[in-house]
Amino acid sequence: MSRLNGKRQEAEQKGMRVNFAILGAGRIANALAKTVVMMAQDPQYSHLIAPYAVAARDGERAAAFAEKYGFAHSYGSYQELLDDPQVDLVYIATPHSLHAEQAIACMKAGKNVLVEKSFAANADQARQVMETSENTGLLCTEAIWTRYMPSRSIIDGIISSGAIGTVRTVTANLGYVTVGKARMTDPALAGGALLDVGVYPLNFIDMVMGPKPIERVCTDWVRSPEGVDSQNSTAIFYKDGSVGEATSSMVSDSDRTGSIWGDQGYLQCININNVESIDLYDGDHKLRKSYPIPDQLTGYEYEVASAAQAILDGKTECAQMPHKDTMRIMELMDSLRRQWGLVFPFESRTSR
């Protein structure tokens, strides 16, 4: 078991920080490394998190990564990281297809996990990860940063205030040209727009609409030459008459806008992937108020801080993205792929 588990009260009394390790050394791993280094130097977070180790399949690459960011330890295999008893929290930054296997291995080795979105390749995998979290009593949470950001609570506050009346429609889109990356195009890596960028519009809608009953889902996709979705569009019709519309693409750059329409006005959010501005309009399309977004280190600090604090508090999930919310999104994405007929090579057609 991790050095913090079973000793959380002692750890808190001593001001023990959570040792943060990264599994993988790609682009998103670099972003998190930069973040935790900044957090360790920031008075708001320095008591909470400590950059500790990185593991990659190439020892030289891991060593160069560790030297670049000032991590104390580097490992040329994932197993070496699992064998280090000083590791408290592992951020899993590998392709979607590997998340479940690696998260389970980490928890069985006594490490808490922060799993990059998409949490897993499908709901069955996600369920196995959640069961391991429950069985080990270790934290397991999805690293989808928009769930943890202050912009979420700002939007929630505006809606709950009644400023736009009753929400009837939510639309969201996200698109980047990323077809040059194997993890995006390779079916064996659970590639495609849906799991990488499409997860953001779906989460944006879900954060507003919540877990209310769905009546039907209409969706379609554009098949890439490799056999994954290059673009997709989805309409979610809820039983109360409200609608969510999500579009994602890996072959075009979108305006990344999220809109929340009520019966007394609407909100427009620029960049659903990292909200930059929130504007409130009335029913006559007049701008009533613009809400500032707090300054941030990188934006990833919120998920890291939430995970670290949850570990110290002895929790197996984070309030911002509890297991039930991750499962709801995973099951929704499975349902979309079923309608498309998109099955990854490592899946059987009956497993989802």
Rank of each mutant, 00 (worst) to 15 (best):
G341C: 03
Y52M: 00
I272P: 02
G162R: 13
L336P: 03
K289V: 11
R223I: 04
K111Q: 09
G24P: 10
M107R: 02
P322K: 14
Y75D: 02
I164D: 03
D255G: 04
T35H: 01
I154L: 14
Y78P: 01
G137M: 03
L287N: 14
E276S: 15
A163H: 14
Y52S: 00
C106F: 03
Y148N: 07
A188W: 13
N30E: 15
A62F: 04
Q41A: 13
T326S: 13
P322T: 11
Q296D: 09
V90R: 03
I260C: 11
L280G: 12
G262D: 10
N274C: 11
A126K: 11
N173L: 12
S230M: 04
C318Q: 01
S118Y: 05
T219A: 14
L138K: 04
K34Q: 15
G165Q: 13
V170L: 10
A93Y: 03
N273R: 15
G258Q: 02
R338V: 11
M39A: 06
L267A: 07
H96D: 13
Y78T: 02
Y238C: 05
V275P: 00
E301P: 04
D206A: 15
H323E: 12
A305S: 13
L189W: 09
R352I: 14
Y45R: 05
D253T: 15
T146N: 08
A56Q: 01
M184V: 13
H99P: 05
M327C: 07
L82C: 02
T234Q: 00
T166N: 14
K111L: 06
S161L: 06
T35N: 05
Q79D: 12
K108C: 01
P85D: 07
H47S: 10
F237I: 06
T166G: 02
G26A: 15
N274M: 11
I155S: 09
D83K: 08
V113G: 02
S133G: 12
Q79M: 02
A143G: 06
